[in-house]
């Protein structure tokens, strides 16, 4: 019998509540709020309380899919990224860089947000960057 409580941060929104995952025999069976976490102080919303459910969900997306002839086909990351890059290049060549916008998220870290805007401005060449927190 292996039982661990693993501290983590809720991935649902930008608040960043501290959670504990209850892991029994290498399977996440529950989520608990972290009592001593300065952000949520032992409280959670309904999404946070059910964090463990999507981890074991059969509907969970585990690998990239490419839509070919109207159907999603499984593929690997290299192919998916290559395809995305090719399509972006095509669109930029045809309609210009400002035809592309980048939406970033409060769910990812500041550093990742920074990298995303850098990709938008330096690589794609557009200022169309927006964020879900800029309401």
């Amino acid at each position: 019998m292996e039982c661990k409580l693993v501290p983590s941060v809720c991935s649902y929104c930008g608040t960043g509540c501290g959670v504990l995952f209850e892991v029994i025999n290498n399977k996440i069976v529950g989520t608990l709020p972290m009592k001593t976490h300065p952000v949520n102080e032992g409280k959670l919303c309904i999404k946070g309380w059910n964090l463990h459910e999507h981890v074991n969900s059969i509907l969970r997306l585990k690998q990239p899919l490419v839509k070919t002839f109207g159907r999603f086909m499984k593929t690997d990351w290299d192919e998916a990224i290559q395809l995305t890059a090719d399509r972006f290049k095509e669109i930029i060549a045809k309609h210009g860089p400002d035809s592309i916008g980048v939406l970033v998220s409060a769910k990812i870290t500041n550093e990742e947000n920074y990298l995303a805007q850098k990709l938008a401005r330096a690589v794609i060449g557009t200022n169309n960057v927006d964020h879900c927190a800029r309401l």
Partner: peptide
């Protein structure tokens, strides 16, 4: 204590 947070431990 894990990272200064007391958490249940087995």
């Amino acid at each position: 204590e894990v990272d200064h947070h007391p958490i249940p431990w087995c």
